[in-house]
Measured scan of single mutants.
Amino acid sequence: TRVETATETAWISLVTALHLVLGLSAVLGLLLLRWQFPAHYRRLRHALW
């Protein structure tokens, strides 16, 4: 049971790290898009909202 718990903890930390990385890359990508294509971003936002 001790090994299982350790594996579970490792998986949880791995998944958390993955989610953090994905979230950060998504935010960075959005910022980059907004910085590179302001007109396109505004049009996209206008279409979405």
Rank of each mutant, 00 (worst) to 15 (best):
L44F: 13
L28G: 00
S25K: 04
I12D: 00
V27P: 02
S25N: 12
V21F: 13
T1K: 11
A10C: 02
T5S: 02
L31D: 00
S13N: 07
L44M: 09
G29K: 02
T1L: 13
R45K: 15
Y41K: 03
W35S: 15
W35M: 15
L20A: 12
L24N: 00
V3N: 03
T16Q: 00
L14S: 03
A39T: 15
L20R: 02
L32F: 06
V27I: 14
A6T: 14
R42M: 09
T1H: 12
S13F: 13
G29E: 04
A17G: 07
T9L: 12
T5N: 00
G23P: 06
L48R: 04
F37Q: 04
L48M: 13
H40Q: 14
W11P: 06
A6W: 05
T1S: 11
V15N: 01
L33D: 04
H46D: 10
F37V: 07
A47C: 08
Y41R: 06
H46G: 09
G29I: 11
R2Y: 13
L18V: 08
L30E: 02
H19T: 05
L32Y: 05
A17F: 08
T1Y: 12
R34M: 07
S13H: 08
T5I: 01
L14G: 00
R42H: 09
F37C: 07
V27R: 02
H46I: 05
V21Y: 03
E4Y: 12
L33N: 06
R34K: 15
A10F: 03
F37T: 06
V21K: 03
F37N: 09
L24E: 06
A10D: 07
W11V: 12
Q36G: 15
P38D: 15
L33H: 06
V3H: 00
Q36N: 14
Y41T: 11
H40Y: 08
S25Q: 08
L31K: 05
A6I: 05
H40A: 12
A10G: 12
L31E: 05
R42K: 15
T1A: 14
Q36R: 15
T5R: 01
L32Q: 03
P38L: 09
V3Y: 01
L31A: 14
W49R: 00
A26T: 13
L28R: 00
T9V: 13
L30N: 04
L14C: 05
T5L: 01
V21H: 00
A39R: 14
L48H: 06
H46N: 13
L33A: 12
F37E: 03
R2A: 12
L14E: 00
L31G: 03
R43N: 09
A10P: 05
L28W: 06
L32H: 08
L18Q: 05
T1C: 11
S25P: 05
L44Q: 01
W35N: 15
L20I: 12
T9G: 12
L18D: 02
R34A: 06
A6Y: 07
A17C: 13
V15E: 02
T9C: 08
G23E: 03
H19I: 03
V3W: 00
S13R: 07
V3S: 01
A39K: 13
L30W: 07
R2P: 12
S13V: 12
L20V: 14
I12T: 11
T7E: 05
E4F: 12
W11Y: 12
S13G: 13
H19Y: 02
E8G: 03
F37K: 03
H46L: 08
R2Q: 14
A39G: 15
E8Y: 06
